[in-house]
């Protein structure tokens, strides 16, 4: 993002896997600018004494013993229950050409 808060909406839509129409670009560009500009407000807060963190709990090393717990697993009918596109227990998606 450059200084003028212009967004490459098409690129962002690509990354998010969204199919946007060209006519929507300017609409979303404006909306995104509004959101990001709000951070200008937050920037006004003095954070000199605040350590950057990605954690809020103060916990460390939350580890699990290496054990299989069958009771945590889902059955195939449960795991595929959110789709009607299945084939022999597999999820089915439209053919992907990009990988090969």
């Amino acid at each position: 993002m450059d200084k003028s808060n212009k967004f490459d909406v098409r690129h962002i839509a690509d990354l998010a896997g969204l199919n946007l129409q060209k006519k929507d670009y300017s609409k979303f560009e404006k909306q995104l600018s509004l959101v990001v500009n709000y951070f200008e407000e937050i920037k006004k807060v003095n954070t000199d004494d605040v350590e950057p963190t990605s954690q809020t709990t103060g916990l460390t090393d939350v580890l699990r013993i290496d054990l299989i717990r069958p009771e945590d697993q889902l059955s195939v009918s449960e795991s595929t229950s959110n789709t009607d596109k299945t084939h022999n227990n597999y999820f089915v998606v439209s053919l992907l050409l990009t990988k090969e």
Partner: peptide, 28 residues
């Protein structure tokens, strides 16, 4: 070659297993 997966308790050994039989809400 751990027994269970990285972030859940499903079996990690997946070779030649029937599809989607070793899954849970975490790894899905």
């Amino acid at each position: 070659s751990t027994k269970s997966k990285m972030f859940c308790s499903c079996p990690a050994e997946h070779f030649a297993k029937e599809a989607n039989t070793q899954v849970c809400p975490i790894c899905l």
